[in-house]
Design a protein around this nucleic acid. Structure first.
Lengths: 402, 402
DNA sequence: ACTAATTTGTAAATCGGCATGACGAATAGC
DNA sequence: GCTATTCGTCATGCCGATTTACAAATTAGT
């Protein structure tokens, strides 16, 4: 019964939970974990000054966290300042681990991340998943998960949750895949197929990619738009450090934003959707190429080799993206736009026209567009880290299950 | 030093304030206020069961709130059930009041709202404000404010804050108007010109309109898109019961979403922005009418009279709005779209084509579009209520200043 | 080397705030 | 009238953070 990680914040004081002392304790435990996790080894006194509690209070909190195996005492710090040196505290390397999994069109991947953010175990398998039944794919995935879990346990870690990234729309129950065109899945509940030993979260690949960017990217703001693309074009909206999910969980469907209202018909019923200009299939067609296995690699290779058709196709896709993003930027006023996922490999040829278009359509200074450093492994890392963040956000919950 | 009302929620446990008993007390005071305010007269026991605290705890909280003048004891309730009847509690009709003000293109309005939401005093003045200097306009506004404040005090109310709605972009400091095309104002700091007796908040008219819809509308969801228009077209995005403001506070600029990327040039630098198809000036031009004083009234009148040119112009505007809203709905997945402000008067002729366009471009069931019941007085009410909500959200803050 | 100053971590006492349990008060049903 | 039920309050206790005090460990100064 853990709260889904990084849900939008609960409402105002009206409807939230009653505020009792236990809740206070829990929140303060969380603050200690966040402080230690974010700012490396820290003494009790340092934590106290950072989170605004007294040293005495922090002492008891830390005791509890150490007993739960979430924090480790590293011993006396090497001092440069006067006074008694503090004893360094760090998140435990043998505590809970976040298990992240990714179901891609042409691969499966699983990894385990410890509280400090280090990847401690991983496994993957290549091979097309398109059209295969959810059951078959998930069975293979479960095999990888067993492997990774065993590996993590071998290092003294205890899996605290599983988060699965899928290339498609996921309902707000974080269990059922409503539509995944790349896999030909519709309305499939993954809840029953995946291991049930620990809390499960299923979410859109783009969402997890955005969270990875938020947590792992350097200098990533708390308000940005994360764009990623495979066959469809997904975006994730990060507002004030949290994901915007929408009523049904479908927020971020950039692919069907109208770019040319009178353009060709789209499967969605509309006309001139972005997907028809910047979607993978559209770009391949415009470049005069056949759809093949590693589509993005093919495009990137040809573009790098100087293929003018491909470059033109990518330029045009960038322009279309620019139009759609102008709308999004006007509406959301984000601090930046980040291109992530598979898109980052094509960024060199997309970016110039995209930035041009965005700047041309913006009155003041245009919203900066950057490329994710994490690239295609963003979703997997984001998934694993989402479990870790859930632990940091409520350490008492996992401690209780220890 | 009050927190700005209804800012986006603070971050996760990492950066928030330390959690001490006083904070707990404050939050519980707020919960009591919200419960009583939302669900009419309530006994202490009823409040306790609603917010999950014990009767004893609620008793002390209520005592404090009564002493601060925020709650009133109405005496024994008329009972229908067995057992000792409870003593009804209601928000005070003599406590703090929210002062809301609106600067429109052709009018000024001010009102005072008590904690129960009733308007207790109001004043307005008609006359064009376009082109007049901020100083002159604000001086007139201050006169109205003085009037309303005096009226409120005459009824035993104590002004707790002032919120001003302006038809333009407001910086995140909630004080300076960055751009207000309808007034010809640019980068003007209203902080120094307005009365300084109580906390001040300046915000976009569309934002306050959306908040009014959220708080006063019946059955309004917690995630919706509120569209309003004067010369520009503004939208406000409500996510999980709070406003999405954007990094600079400019979120919701629907007017410059590209609708036809190759359309005519716009003042913003772009081409084919929504404003050029659905903006007031554009619609008037398309209808073959001259800009005049009461533009919206003129359009509504002609359309109602059956003027086919006007009706066509409004139909086309609705279609353009539909295209822009398709993008927005795809991106945000709101529960509904609400047409508010001056737009609501034109809704009968805009809605059909708007809904058509939105439905045509949506795969599943289209996002429902409704019209605000509050109409043009939404912004003023939203402003006044924002102050009231700030009191409900942190009663201890005003009690301290009592 | 010795002392003073400074900082850390912990222990004891205190305080604030909610829960618990008991009680008188006020009502409905019999 | 009697009982069951509900409401508001009081005394008590528990939990959690603060305050105050103190021993331990280091640097700076003489």
């Amino acid at each position: 019964m853990t709260a889904p990680p990084h849900e939008a914040h609960p409402a105002g004081p009206g409807r939230s939970l009653p505020d009792t002392q236990q809740g206070m304790r829990r929140r303060n435990l969380a603050r200690v974990m966040h402080a230690v996790s974010a700012e490396g080894p820290l003494s009790r006194a340092a934590v106290a000054s950072r989170i605004g509690l007294t040293r005495a209070a922090v002492s008891t909190l830390v005791d509890e966290l150490i007993r739960s195996g979430l924090l480790e005492e590293l011993g006396p710090q090497r001092p440069g300042r006067v006074g008694r040196p503090g004893s360094a505290l760090a998140v435990s390397g043998r505590g809970p681990a976040g298990i992240g999994a990714e179901i891609g069109v042409d691969h499966l991947a699983v990894c385990a991340v410890d509280l400090s953010g280090r990847t401690r175990s991983r496994a993957e398998r290549h091979g097309l998943n398109r059209g295969r039944s959810p059951r078959t794919v998930i069975e293979e995935l479960n095999e990888l998960i067993r492997l990774v879990v065993a590996g993590a346990e071998g290092e003294g870690l205890r899996p605290a949750g599983l988060a699965v990234a899928v290339p498609g729309l996921v309902a707000r129950d974080a269990r059922t895949v409503v539509r995944a065109p790349n896999l030909d899945w519709r309305d499939t509940d993954l809840g029953g197929l995946l291991p049930s030993g620990f809390p499960l979260t299923v979410d859109n690949e783009a969402n997890f990619g955005a969270l990875a960017e938020l947590w792992l990217g350097e200098g990533t703001p708390r308000d940005f738009l994360h764009v990623s693309a495979e066959i469809g074009i997904g975006a994730a909206v990060v507002v004030d450090g949290g994901l915007l999910r929408g009523t049904r969980g479908f927020a971020g469907e950039l692919g069907h934003v109208p770019v040319r209202p009178d353009g060709p018909e789209c499967a969605c019923g509309g006309r001139g959707c972005l997907e028809q200009y910047a979607g993978e299939e559209a770009v391949l067609r415009a470049a005069g190429l056949e759809p093949d296995e590693d589509r993005v690699g093919l495009l990137a290779g040809r573009a790098a080799a100087g293929d003018e058709d491909v470059r033109r196709a990518l330029r045009d896709a960038g322009t279309a993206l620019g139009v759609a993003l102008t709308g999004a930027v006007n509406l959301l006023d984000p601090e930046s736009v980040v291109l992530g996922g598979e898109l980052s490999a094509l960024a060199p040829w997309l970016l110039p026209s995209l930035r041009d278009e965005l700047a041309r359509r913006t009155a003041g200074p245009a919203c900066p567009v950057s490329v994710s450093r994490l690239g295609p492994q963003g979703p997997l890392l984001g998934a694993a880290h989402s479990v870790v963040r859930a632990v940091l956000d409520d350490p008492a919950a996992v401690a209780g299950r220890a």
